[in-house]
Design a protein around this nucleic acid. Structure first.
Lengths: 326, 326
DNA sequence: CATTATTATGTAACCGGTAACACAATTCAT
DNA sequence: ATGAATTGTGTTACCGGTTACATAATAATG
């Protein structure tokens, strides 16, 4: 493989000059610039990013840690991150933490010893100190890890309020909230929003994991136990779709007998029938913003704001009825 | 950051010995081994994979090129690849080619100049020669690129035959095939399978992209134009789900009025209502097999077989009726 | 025109490993 | 005991860049 020395030789210059040309720093005369460009073209020279990483102690890779890329929420974020990274000449290393502390820990070790330029983390099982003590730039995406770590997230409580209110406005009387796993900040916040809106009503709360079948099972039991439920606020679109699935199974018509509102805004929501009414996060925007915040940090720019809260937006589709004036 | 020299100093040995210890090659005495291990522990030394890559001209990263991770087919493959890579101490770089030749090309350039150890490619727009002339190990996943490139793929034609036959056995009389984009090998093969089974019948064929809305539109038109259609074989689960969506919209009952069979076996198929009957590929197995084939190549092992065809399997769920003896 | 800035280039140490080579110490065989 | 084989260790060039430093060439200034 052709290296910088070859280029220097062909251009009849020293490696120093060629390197300066490549990095656009220091002085390089017009004449030399031309000769170097010519040589590079001639030899089809591509600088080795590995060598560069070694001497600069910095790479152009960013690590993206997600719990599980199969969860339909994450590909949308991942795509946005990757697009943005690509634009700025960075490369994305994909890591599935599987929500396992150990794997996450090992990944962080492996990544940092590879000189990843930075980390985007959408999972947060570890002690925050592990992140805060990292010398590598980092951005928390979707979930806040620690006040000191730059974060891009949705205002979950606010979103949940909007979704729940919509359910009420559409005439739902008896509400069920399917909340995600306990202890997960996002799920907790969404529950809080739900509770705030429904504090003077009787409601049912079901706690479940994000696994489709487990969730479906739990929802089925809740709906059988409380057949009068006519509105469901789900903590995620996947859970909402599980609810929809069960509604069909139980012969409940959606939205006539049972209305459902999800949360997240994954593409999947449009595909089911009826299409899912949901509190939609702008996932692409979030991913892109996180990547940009990270790259800004990497390149030493000051961050204007360290915490970016993006508002979720109600998207009304087929699982809720018309809003009626109260 | 502590380096190999520091370790050598603390262990009172030379870097050569430490390096030999780390790579488990050459001779290292018991006494030295202990001293080195002690020093490593003491200093919490982590070898720099960048430096190693530079001198070995080989890294432990593998590039995974997919058209678009948002397409629900790919996260399942990606996950399997990542799991396997993790197991063997490799790291996955995610690349979305967007089905654009240019981006794919640029990615390959970038990846190879970073000394990726190998490439798994699930897209194949480029001239095969670009891949065959690569010095980097490579595996084609899902789609065959060239006879000379190791491949893991499903027998699409066979799968399509099984799916179509099932549709007929369940009593469908008038079939529609929704085929994916023309020129895409997998889509072409699946159509071939469909045609082989239905050669003595009249059928309708709709060609569309994999985009959900575009596909739905095309399917709707086809179903309106030919209202007698009572069986759909879709070239992918996404297309099948689009068909299901349209069926609901048009007030057709599934599977009573219209039966649908998909292809792929993505998780999404279980979530829709009714759950999708589909020709299921073992996506996890495919991804894992591809990763293993790649790693075998990287590590210089001989491949037992260069082309691995994995049979797809019919999974009967709710969008088809009972099979009846013909 | 001499002096000082500014621009341009070359040289070589360094990043943190690997591995070829030389040589020393030990074990083995005759 | 002695030469050969095996085992163990140190030294150093190298991977392909970056960058501090020295120096040369040119331009600007008084």
């Amino acid at each position: 493989m052709v290296n910088i020395k070859d280029v220097a030789k062909v251009a009849n210059l020293s490696v120093g000059t060629v390197s300066r040309y490549l990095n656009q720093n220091g002085y390089v005369s017009k004449r030399s610039t031309e000769r170097i460009e010519q040589a590079i073209r001639e030899l089809d020279y591509k600088p080795s990013s590995v060598a560069r990483s070694l001497s600069k102690k910095q790479s152009n890779m960013i690590g993206l840690i997600v719990p599980d890329i199969k969860n339909p929420y994450f590909p949308e974020l991942a795509r946005a991150v990757e697009d943005t990274a690509w634009q700025y000449d960075y490369t994305v290393v994909l890591c599935n933490s599987d929500e396992k502390t150990e794997k996450e820990h090992l990944y962080i070790e492996r990544l940092t010893q590879t000189y990843v330029a930075g980390l985007i983390v959408t999972t947060s099982l570890l002690d925050a100190s592990i992140y805060t003590s990292l010398q590598t730039p980092i951005v928390a995406l979707d979930r806040m890890i620690d006040a000191s770590i730059p974060t891009v997230a949705t205002d979950n409580k606010k979103g949940a309020k909007i979704g729940t209110e919509h359910l009420l406005m559409c005439g739902a009387k008896s509400l069920l909230c399917i909340r995600g796993p306990q202890g997960l900040q996002t799920a907790d916040d969404r529950l809080l929003g739900f509770l705030e809106v429904t504090k003077d009503r009787e409601t049912t709360i079901v706690t479940t994991t994000f696994d489709f079948n487990v969730a479906a099972e739990a929802i089925e039991q809740a709906l059988i136990a409380s057949p009068h439920i006519d509105g469901i606020f789900a903590s995620s679109d996947t859970l909402a779709i599980a609810a929809l699935h069960i509604a069909h199974k139980l012969g409940k018509r959606v939205p006539e007998d049972l209305q459902i509102v999800g949360f997240d805004g994954i593409a999947l929501g449009e595909m089911v029938s009826p299409a899912l009414t949901t509190v939609s996060q702008n996932l692409y925007e979030m991913g892109a913003a996180a990547a940009e915040m990270l790259i800004d940090q990497i390149e030493g720019k000051e961050l204007k704001q360290t915490v970016l809260h993006i508002d979720a937006q109600l998207v009304v589709r087929g699982t809720t009825r018309e809003e009626v004036a109260k």
